[in-house]
Design a protein around this nucleic acid. Structure first.
Lengths: 202, 202
DNA sequence: AAATTGGTATCACGAGTGTGCTAGAAAAGT
DNA sequence: ACTTTTCTAGCACACTCGTGATACCAATTT
C-alpha cells in the first residue's frame, strides 16, 4: 500500500516546481506527470480533476508558508527589553519569510503570485486567494502589535497594517518578476528601513 | 483604405478588455477576433503572429499609462510654496495614476500585472517587463525629488525610491486581486500617509 | 482597362488539452 | 485460494489552439 498523502504531496511538489519555473499555464496533467515521474493515470488516481489538483497545490503552498510563520511566531514575542532597532531587525527577519530570498521561498512566493492571479478569473480558487491576501494584513497586524507592545510604536493600525502588507506584497511581487532589479538585499534594506521608521514615529 | 493604426489600436483594445476580464490565458486569436467583432483573418492581417499581438498590446498599455503621467507631470513641479501636507496630497493624486481606482485604471493595472507575470516565462516580453518594473522606481524617484526640492524631505533616495515603488506596486497588486479587501479608499489613505510621513522625516 | 496591393473570409493540419472509459497488475482483506 | 480494493497504464474522444495556405472582394496604382 502506497502512502496516499505522501503521493499527493509529491505530485503537488511537481506542480509547484513547474509553476515556478514555467508559469501556471504550463501546468498540464501530462507535464505534471512527467515532472513527478509518474503516469498520467496515476496522477488522475489521486486527483479527480485538474481543478482539484490546482486547489490542492495552492492550499499546500499557503499551508507551507503559514507553517513556517507559526514555527517562528515566538519571534514576535517581546522576550526581554530590546532596543527598538534590534526589535525592528528581528521582525524584519520574521517578515522576510514572505520574500523570495532563497530557493525555497522563491518557489513559494512565485507560485503564490501565479495562483493569486489565476484566482482572479477562477471562482474555484477565490476563497484561497482571499485567505492569502488577508493573511498578509493579519501578519502585518501581528508585527505592529509586537512593536506596540514594547511601546515603540503608536500609529494607527488601520493604516499601518495595510501599508506594511502592501509593502511586503509589493517587494515580493517585484522580486519575483525581476530579481535583478529588486534584489534580495534591497528587499531587506527597504523592509528594515520601514520597520525602523515605524519605531521612531510612535 | 482603412486606417491601419486605428485598427491595430482597436484590436489591442479587445485584447486588453479580454485580459482584464478573463485573464491573459483567455486571450486567443479567436477570442480577440470575436471581442473586436472582426474575422480572425482580419486580425491576422494586422498582426503576423500571436506574439506580435501580445507585444503590441503590452507596449500600448505601458505607453498609455506613461502618457497619462507625462500629461500630469507638472504636478511634480513645485509651483509656489505649498504646505508639506498639501504637497503630499498633490503627489498622492499623481501616483494614484498607477492604482486601479476607476474603470480605466483598473483595466490598465490589471492587464499590466497579467503581462508582467506572463513575461516571467516569456523572454519575448522581458524587455517590456523590465521597462515597467523600472518605471515605477523612476516615478518614485521623481516624486521624491519633488519632495526634496521643497526641502520637505531629506531621506536616502536609494532606499526610499524602492520603498515607494514597492508600496505602489503592492497596493496595485492587492487592489487588482481583491478590490473588496484592498479598496480604493484604503489605497489612497495608505499612499497619502506614506508621503506625509516622508515629509515629516527629512 | 489591367495589374497590383490591401483587406476579408475560410479551410485544414498538427499539436496539445482535460476527461471518460477500460483493463491489467499489485496489494489487502476474507 | 478467492475476492475486493487500490494503483498503474493507456486508448480515444471532443475540444481549442496558432498558423500555413488559398481564395475572393475592393480599392488604388499604373
Amino acid at each position: 500500500m502506497v502512502d496516499g498523502q505522501q503521493r499527493r504531496a509529491h505530485i503537488a511538489d511537481a506542480v509547484l516546481r513547474l509553476a515556478a519555473r514555467d508559469g501556471l499555464h504550463a501546468v498540464s496533467l501530462r507535464a505534471v506527470a512527467a515532472e513527478a515521474e509518474l503516469n498520467i493515470g496515476s496522477v488522475r488516481h489521486y486527483f479527480d480533476s485538474q481543478h482539484d489538483l490546482m486547489r490542492f497545490a495552492m492550499r499546500a503552498t499557503i499551508d507551507r508558508v503559514t507553517a513556517r510563520l507559526v514555527e517562528r511566531r515566538e519571534t514576535t514575542d517581546p522576550i526581554g527589553r530590546l532596543r527598538p532597532d534590534e526589535l525592528a531587525d528581528r521582525l524584519t527577519g520574521f517578515l522576510a519569510e514572505l520574500l523570495p530570498l532563497d530557493e525555497r521561498r522563491r518557489t513559494e512566493t512565485t507560485v503564490l503570485v501565479e495562483f493569486l492571479l489565476a484566482a482572479r478569473a477562477d471562482p474555484g480558487l477565490a476563497d484561497l486567494a482571499g485567505e492569502a491576501i488577508r493573511g498578509t494584513v493579519t501578519l502585518a497586524r501581528r508585527v505592529l502589535d509586537a512593536l506596540a507592545r514594547t511601546g515603540a510604536f503608536a500609529g494607527d493600525p488601520d493604516v499601518e497594517a495595510p501599508r506594511l502588507a502592501a509593502l511586503l506584497d509589493g517587494l515580493a511581487f517585484r522580486a519575483v518578476l525581476r530579481p535583478e532589479i529588486t534584489t534580495g538585499e534591497e528587499c531587506l534594506a527597504v523592509l528594515r528601513a520601514h520597520l525602523r521608521q515605524l519605531t521612531r514615529t510612535g
